[in-house]
Nucleic acid binder design. Structure first.
Length: 657
RNA sequence: GCCGGCGUAGCUCAAUCGGCAGAGCAAUCGCCUUGUAAGCGAUAGGUUAGGGGUUCGAUUCCCCUCGCCGGCUCCA
């Protein structure tokens, strides 16, 4: 009898010997950790994965990013099993984990109803309770075809895997390398096969290991995301490592709903979308208008200081301009249809400002002495967004960009990009966003204009500028537009959601198309580099982001009403009115609530309007020449002398608090 | 655009089976004169999104249009 052969593996960083035939699960058990899967040689594997000589095994815990993905993917399988048990005619699409949850697509005759979801959730609970094992087995392409003959969509995926009709619709589907695998759901006691699915894995050891899940909604989705493909019914769910984590997520969703800018816009009387005007076209009410004005004023001031020149361009133009820029070739669908004028001339509403700025640059001969030339405009543009994608202020059909184009020499480009990024981040911080990461979109080798050399140079300049900021930098390989590399600033808001904010985009195409040039010091004519940038993206969108970030409680400098005077009784109105008048003289926005309501009600109203400062005055305050502060967080400070009170509010506004 | 859901007073929502369209808040007008989140009363407010159909009768059932909401990107 020979000794049991041994394998040498690296277990969570330390070298170990284990018996041949040991699985990842067994190896990690010795480590005494609660794990649901393993990374074996960097690849995610089930715990049942058999180890080989030299494998490096790392535990994957359920609360890790990978662990959650595995949990959610397993939950998707349980959902699919439940669906096929209750709707035997349902055909399977795909069921991946997604951020915060999972989905699974099904081809069914009738869309799922909310009560279907309830039944499915119950069925899923039964499956989870049973503790079915996820058993993995490898199959050949032909074997998979045989087993899944009744699943047309799975068959299609097998076909894609073997490259059969990969190019048929041109859709990019990445199918994992290696053989196909099927996961069997096996009853733990009877060993009965309950269900199976073609799947790359990995999965949890058993369905019992799904601690908390919930089905969220169902909606249609095109098969493989292509508009021309049939629509399947998609069920979304969420799954978490503990019941508390699920609860926290549901609370987060509630919080996000409370902050929804469309809801707050109505509640705080900031803006609306009158039907009479049309989808995606907002009107700003006085309170929204003043916030917007403050946002613009501050931005203008900062741009002025940063050496921008202010220009102004019209909203409509002859088609010729967008023929020249090329937009009509590839962007016509996104534009409002043309207006035909006398003589058969087409006019368009502008979907972007760039070409008009280029014409300004090109209005006369330019000298190198004028560069960098920074042209800035709050430019209103109109884009015909598809009806289903319009969404409040964040996806509107008419909106105003804080748009600027910087024309500089190649030598100036790197320095310009560097100072620009600093400027952008500084300004965003002034508006109260301070948690950023950057995304660098680089050349798509399939589709680009300009020389490799200039791409290389500008991409490196962007990268260097980004790295200097010391922020997280995410690469978006091949994500750039054909005309130049781009850096975008992503901001996390108060509840951790990320929003794409500013973009800085180098453009090699427009200088060519518009034949832009300047005279260099040596008298030669040279082409400038164009840098396109927007900080807010659009004022409307930025407005919405700030509204949601602050949950409507804008800092004093942006608040539409900065303070409300609240008299204890009518007789105290003149005193507050005099104080308010003085503060208005200092440029503050102050109301005095002289309505018939009693003082408690006035506080409630001011509180609901999220006014930063409430100034109460009754006999006691007047006797002392003071007011009593109530802040919107509910705290208070009584008997503050008028001068001090004035200074406190002014300081808050001045310091943009 | 596609699929599904929804559309009743400024806002939030009721209205049994197809049988006179209602409440709270907001608004207006009174009364009350008040110390930290809703004082009391009265008045006004509607072509039930718009159009068509079925019916003795439609907010309710059917069709069309418009608008809004969710999803259609994260890939066995």
């Amino acid at each position: 009898m020979s000794a049991v052969p041994e394998l040498r593996i690296t277990l969570a960083g330390t070298e170990r010997s284990v018996a041949a035939g040991t699985t990842a699960g067994q190896a990690l058990e010795a480590d005494g950790r609660t794990v649901i899967a393993a990374r074996v040689g960097g690849e995610l594997r089930d715990l049942a994965w058999e180890l080989s000589e030299g494998d490096a095994v790392e535990p994957v815990e359920i609360s890790s990013e990978d662990g959650r993905a595995i949990l959610r993917h397993s939950a998707a399988h349980v959902l699919a099993q439940a669906v096929q048990e209750l709707f035997p005619e349902a055909k399977l699409g795909i069921g991946p984990p997604v951020e915060n949850g999972f989905y699974y697509d099904f081809d069914v005759a009738e869309p799922f109803t909310p009560s279907d979801l309830k039944r499915l959730e119950k069925k899923m609970q039964e499956i989870v309770k049973q503790g079915q094992r996820f058993d993995r087995r490898e199959v050949t392409d032909d074997g998979a075809r045989e087993e899944l003959a009744t699943e047309p969509y799975k068959m299609e995926l097998i076909g894609l895997k073997s490259g059969a009709d990969q190019a048929a619709d041109g859709a990019s589907v990445e199918v994992g390398e290696g053989g196909l695998t099927i996961y069997d759901n096996v009853h733990p006691r009877t060993g009965e096969l309950c269900w199976k699915d073609l799947c790359r894995g990995p999965h949890l050891p058993t369905t019992k290991a799904i601690p908390a899940f919930k089905l969220m909604r169902s909606a249609a989705a095109y098969w493989r995301g292509k508009e021309t493909n049939p629509q399947l019914q998609r069920i979304y769910g969420t799954a978490w490592e503990t019941k508390d984590a699920l609860k926290a997520y549901l609370t987060f969703l509630e919080e996000a709903e409370k902050r929804d800018h469309r809801k707050l816009g109505t509640e705080l009387d900031l803006f609306s979308f009158p039907d009479e005007i049309g989808s995606g076209l907002a009107v700003f009410h006085p309170k929204g208008g003043v916030i917007r004005k403050e946002m613009e004023d501050y931005s203008r001031r900062r741009h002025e200081q940063a050496g921008y020149e202010f220009v102004n361009t019209p909203h409509a133009t002859k088609a010729k301009l967008f023929e020249k820029s090329g937009h009509l070739d590839w962007y016509a669908d996104g534009m409002y249809p043309p207006m035909q004028l006398d003589g058969g001339v087409d006019y368009y509403l502008k979907p972007m400002n760039c070409p008009m700025h280029h014409l300004i640059f090109d209005a006369r001969g330019r000298s190198y002495r004028e560069l960098p030339m920074r042209l800035f405009e709050f430019g209103t543009v109109y884009r015909y967004e598809k009806s289903g994608v319009v969404h409040g202020l964040t996806r509107a059909r008419g909106f105003t960009q804080d748009d600027a184009h910087i024309y500089c020499s190649k030598e100036q480009m790197a320095g310009e990009l560097d100072s620009l990024l600093t400027f952008v981040l500084d300004l965003l911080r002034d508006y109260g966003l301070d948690d950023f990461y950057l995304e660098l979109s680089t050349k798509d080798p399939e589709k680009y204009v300009g020389t490799d050399e200039v791409w290389e140079e500008s991409t490196e300049a962007l990268r260097a500028a980004a790295e200097k900021q010391g922020l997280e930098l995410v690469l978006d390989p091949a994500g750039a537009a054909f005309y130049g590399p781009k850096i975008s600033v992503q901001a996390r808001d108060a509840i951790g959601r990320t929003w794409q904010m500013s973009t800085i985009q180098v453009d090699f195409n427009m200088p060519e198309r518009f034949d832009l040039e300047f005279t260099a010091a040596d008298g030669t004519r040279q082409q400038p580099v164009v840098i396109h940038r927007a900080l807010f993206g659009s004022i409307e969108r930025f407005f919405a982001v700030l509204l949601e970030h602050y949950a409507g409680a804008f800092p004093a400098w942006l608040a539409p009403v900065q303070a409300v005077g609240i008299p204890i009784a009518d007789e105290h109105v003149p005193y507050l009115e005099r104080f308010a008048e003085r503060l208005r003289g200092e440029g503050l926005r102050i109301d005095v609530d002289s309505s018939d309501d009693r003082m408690q009600k006035k506080i409630r109203n001011a509180q609901k309007q999220k006014v930063p400062f409430m100034l109460l005055a009754g006999d006691e305050d007047i006797a002392k020449g003071a007011v009593s502060f109530r802040y919107r967080d509910g705290s208070q400070k009584n008997g503050v002398p008028l001068d001090e009170a004035a200074e406190e509010i002014l300081a808050a506004v001045r310091e943009r608090r």
